[in-house]
Simulated scan of single mutants.
Amino acid sequence: MATRVFGHVTVTTPDLDEPGLYLSHVDTLDSARGIVQDFSFRDADLRSLDLADTQLIAGRIADVRSQRVELQALNLHGVEISGSDLRSVRWSESKLTRVVVRDCKLMGAALDGLVLDDVLFEGCKFDYATFDRMRATGPVAFTGCVLTAAVFSDCDLSDVVFSDCTLRTTEFGGGRYRDTDLRGNDLSTIRGVANLAKVRIDHTQQADLVHALVSELDITVGDD
């Protein structure tokens, strides 16, 4: 069983190279049975990628480029997504378990109602993405991700770790942030500071939060 440690959480990742597991190449992720298992889907240029009510179990998605992505009611278990450029993503009401999303572009993505358990986002670009009603039910980490102007709204990010991420004007709206680990990130331009009750930061980040709050409240600091 492969694991990665980030701060206070340990993420269990897919072990797709285990002995006895053979991944078959597939040309599409559509299936009449609604299940695609032990698969490899890679090197595809698509105009659109539409999936609904589908289970993806034990597989790799790599180097996929799509101009439009619509994903609904998916169940991903033991899946690795890497090196992909997914544009105009609309991803809703899905569950991800033991999933790694690595070196992918999901800029401007709209992610709504995702449930995450043992999920790692690594080196991904989420600029201007919106995360609505996302819920972490197990270990989740964002590491080395760019979240410029991304918005989290009505999410439960309890115990989620953000490590070495770019959080430039990232907005944390109303939600749950108990023990959300923000250590090791520049927090000086984040928004929604007042919502971040009970998060984890280090001593050096206290000044970042003060700067962010002063900026967000448009406070003028001066002697006259």
Rank of each mutant, 00 (worst) to 15 (best):
V119R: 09
V140L: 05
C165W: 07
R133E: 10
D181L: 04
L21R: 14
G173W: 03
H77E: 13
P19T: 09
L76Y: 06
E18R: 15
A52W: 08
D179I: 00
K125V: 09
A149P: 00
A194H: 10
F131R: 00
T143D: 14
S94K: 08
T10A: 07
G59N: 08
R42W: 03
G59T: 09
A109Q: 02
Y22K: 08
F142V: 04
R102I: 02
L21E: 04
A212M: 05
G144A: 04
R200T: 11
G78L: 09
E122K: 09
C155P: 01
T130P: 00
A58M: 07
K105V: 06
N195Q: 08
D181K: 10
V210S: 14
T189V: 02
D38Q: 10
L74D: 02
L147D: 04
A62P: 00
S153D: 14
V5E: 09
D112L: 05
L167S: 03
V221H: 00
E70Q: 13
G59V: 13
V140W: 04
T180M: 15
K95V: 12
Y22P: 00
D181V: 04
L182M: 15
L16S: 06
R60L: 10
F142P: 06
D224Q: 12
R178T: 08
T148I: 06
P19R: 10
D103S: 15
G138N: 10
D85N: 15
E216N: 03
V151T: 15
P14K: 11
V210H: 09
V199M: 06
R102K: 14
D17S: 14
H211L: 08
T169W: 15
V5P: 00
R68N: 11
V199E: 06
H25I: 11
S153A: 14
Y128E: 12
A197K: 14
L96F: 15
F131K: 01
S215M: 06
R135P: 00
Q206H: 09
R183M: 06
R42S: 15
G113M: 09
D208Y: 06
R90Q: 14
V5S: 10
V11Y: 01
F126N: 02
L147W: 06
L56K: 11
T143R: 11
E18G: 03
D45E: 13
A136P: 01
D181S: 08
A2F: 06
L114N: 05
V214S: 09
L96I: 01
V36D: 04
